[in-house]
Simulated scan of single mutants.
Amino acid sequence: MKNSKELHSNCPIQYTLDMIGGKWKLVILWHLTNDKVMRYGEIKRSLTGITHKMLSQQLKELEANGLIHREEYPQVPPKVEYSLTELGKSLLPVLQSMSEWGEKSLL
């Protein structure tokens, strides 16, 4: 079976959408910009309307795609932190452009 890169080698836009597509992934990545490290609860509070199940799923997919890093600390209660990987940070210019476009379009 071909991996995602092989399946979309002729369409980089489709590959990109597979990595970051969906209602929440870009917003999660945006909240993790500026070398932020956030705990699960902080991310949840920053996203109005997301369910626990959806946030967990989106975080797992972003981690599997290599865009975020999940650090789990063995303590009680458990502590888990999320941050951008270098690959995730490479999306910052795209996210910044989208933010600027959104600000202009809201006027």
Results as ranks from 00 to 15, higher is better:
Gln58Tyr: 15
Glu72Pro: 00
Pro77Asp: 10
Glu61Asn: 10
Leu92His: 14
Tyr73Pro: 00
Glu71Lys: 14
Leu91Phe: 15
Pro77Tyr: 13
Leu106Tyr: 08
Lys53Pro: 00
Lys25Met: 01
Ser9Phe: 01
Ser97Gly: 04
Ala64Thr: 08
Ser83Tyr: 11
Lys89Glu: 05
Val94Arg: 03
Glu103Thr: 06
Val80Gln: 14
Gly49Met: 07
Val27Thr: 08
Val37Ser: 10
Glu71Cys: 08
Arg39Tyr: 03
Glu71Phe: 03
Met98Phe: 11
Leu47Ala: 07
Val76Leu: 05
Lys2Phe: 05
Ser90Thr: 11
Ser9Cys: 02
Arg39Trp: 01
Arg45Thr: 11
Ser90Ile: 00
Gln57Val: 09
His31Leu: 04
His8Asn: 12
Leu47Pro: 04
Glu6Cys: 01
Glu103Phe: 09
Leu47Glu: 04
Arg70Lys: 15
Pro74Glu: 13
Ser105Trp: 09
Thr85Ile: 08
Asn34Pro: 00
Gly88Asn: 11
Tyr40Asp: 03
Leu47Val: 08
Leu67Lys: 03
Thr51Trp: 11
Gln58His: 14
Lys44Asp: 07
Leu95Thr: 06
Val27Asn: 04
His8Asp: 05
Leu95Pro: 01
Met54Val: 14
Lys104Ile: 02
Gln14Asp: 05
Gln57Gly: 09
Thr48Arg: 05
Asn10Lys: 10
Lys25Tyr: 01
Val37Asn: 08
Ser99Gly: 02
His52Glu: 15
Ile68Thr: 11
Leu17Ala: 00
Asp18Phe: 12
Gly41Pro: 01
Ile43Ser: 04
Asp35Phe: 13
Pro78His: 08
Leu59Ile: 12
Lys25Asp: 02
Ser97His: 12
Ile20Pro: 01
His69Gly: 00
Leu92Ile: 15
Asn10Gly: 06
Val37Met: 09
Pro12Lys: 15
Ser90Glu: 11
Lys89His: 09
Trp24Gln: 03
Val94Cys: 10
Lys2Tyr: 01
Lys36Thr: 04
Glu103Asn: 08
Ser99Trp: 08
Pro74Phe: 11
His31Arg: 04
Asn10Arg: 07
Tyr40Gln: 05
Glu63Asn: 11
Lys25Phe: 02
Lys60Asn: 11
His52Ser: 14
Glu6Ala: 02
Glu72Asp: 11
His52Cys: 05
Ile28His: 01
Glu71Trp: 03
Met54Asn: 13
Pro78Cys: 05
Leu55Phe: 09
Gln75Phe: 04
Ile68Lys: 13
Val37Phe: 08
His31Asn: 05
Leu29Gly: 01
Leu32Ile: 06
Thr48Ile: 02
Lys36Met: 06
Pro12Val: 10
Gln96Ser: 13
Pro78Met: 08
Gln57Asp: 13
Val37Thr: 10
Tyr82Thr: 01
Val80Asn: 07
Leu67Pro: 00
Gln58Pro: 00
Cys11Lys: 03
Leu26Met: 02
Trp30Glu: 09
Leu106Asp: 09
Leu59Ala: 13
Pro78Glu: 09
Ile50Tyr: 13
Pro77Val: 11
Gln75Cys: 05
Ser4Phe: 00
Lys5Tyr: 10
Val76Met: 10
Arg45Leu: 15
Leu87Tyr: 12
Gln96Ile: 12
Asn10Thr: 09
Gln14Pro: 00
Pro78Tyr: 07
Lys5His: 06
Gly66Met: 04
Val27Ser: 05
Pro74Asp: 14
Glu42Trp: 03
Ile43Glu: 04
Gly88Asp: 08
Thr85Tyr: 14
Asp35Ser: 15
Pro12Phe: 10
Tyr73Cys: 10
Leu17Trp: 08
